[in-house]
């Protein structure tokens, strides 16, 4: 009689596919990918039990760079696709990954409603304050005075504050990480996956090609001086004084995760026909 097969422990390498990323050298997304695979290995998940869902953009290429199941959909709709997947398949661990244009601009409405719906998803937004794939246009998180071909005088628009919006809309876990700190980012992502409900991780991930000045982010970031709170009011007060470079977990809520009306599998469609019979 054979001994039951024991699957060997997986390492981060087991979650990396052999595809070569399309990203530029020095892109922050490489280390975000490494952080995700490290977090999945630390949680000892199986690649086939994890789905990575994305939309369009540089960072949205990430699903195929993992050995997990991937869904590379249309621009801005990753959260919607992930919602359908997670509700249909609650047994899976579902990660959503993408950039600030995909997540906050074209996908902004889905972001609000994903926070509000509080489905057990982990949303990782690699924020570089620019549309990189289309070669450098301002995104919702771009500074108002940043000049580009499309906005020669700057946008003049105030930046979207993802953490404030996530908190106001009801996200159950809110954190900020920095791609230049892969261990810290992996730890935050791991915690986000474990936390029930909708977990939002904003990762500052520099675009060295179109925003080379973001190389200086590594000097600007600093760990938050206080621990995560479960009090939304306290989290809101902290965000009032946020300089945008605080990293760590801001908020861990206690709202129960969305659960779909539990289907009773007792009936067959034919059983419903009596509603129409005369």
């Amino acid at each position: 009689m054979n001994a039951p097969a024991i699957a060997p422990a997986l390492t981060a390498q087991d979650f990396k596919s052999d595809y070569k990323p399309v990203w530029c050298p020095g892109c922050g997304d490489y280390t975000v990918l490494a952080s995700i695979t490290r977090a999945l290995a630390a949680l000892q998940l199986r690649p086939e039990k994890v789905a990575v869902v994305s939309g369009i953009g540089c960072s949205s290429r990430i699903p195929a760079y993992t050995t997990c199941y991937g869904f590379h959909g249309v621009h801005g709709r990753a959260l919607a696709a992930a919602t359908g997947l997670k509700v249909a398949r609650p047994d899976l661990t579902v990660l959503v990954a993408g950039g600030d244009g995909d997540g906050y601009s074209i996908g902004g409405n889905h972001f609000l409603h994903a926070c509000r719906r509080n489905i057990d998803l982990t949303d990782i937004v690699m924020d570089n304050h620019v549309y990189g794939m289309t070669k450098g246009q301002p995104s919702p998180t771009t500074e108002p005075d940043w000049k580009s071909k499309l906005s020669p005088a700057g946008t003049g628009l105030r930046e979207f504050h993802p953490l404030v919006i996530a908190l106001a809309a009801g996200a159950n876990f809110i954190a900020r990480a920095f791609s230049g700190d892969p261990s810290g980012t992996a730890a935050v992502i791991g915690e986000a996956i474990r936390h029930p409900g909708f977990s939002f991780v904003e990762v500052l991930s520099p675009c060295v090609t179109f925003r080379p000045e973001q190389r200086a982010w590594k000097e600007a970031v600093h760990p938050a001086s206080v621990a995560a709170t479960d009090d939304p009011a306290r989290a809101a007060r902290r965000l009032m004084t946020d300089d945008g470079f605080n990293t760590g977990v801001l908020y861990k809520g206690t709202r129960p995760a969305y659960s779909a009306a539990a289907g009773k599998t007792t009936l067959h469609p034919a059983d419903l026909e009596k509603d129409f019979a005369l």
Binding site: V53, F71, G73, V74, G76, R77, A80, A81, A82, T83, G84, L85, K86, V87, A88, R89, N109, H110, L112, H113, A260, A261, A262, G263, K264, T265, T266, L267, H268, P269, D271, L272
Partner: peptide, 23 residues
């Protein structure tokens, strides 16, 4: 619900179509 399925109300039609693709 009676036959073991699920319905989710979406925030818009862009979401509803992408939700069914995900499912």
């Amino acid at each position: 619900t009676k036959v073991g399925g699920t319905l989710v109300q979406a925030e818009d039609e862009l979401a509803s179509i992408n939700m069914i693709l995900g499912a």
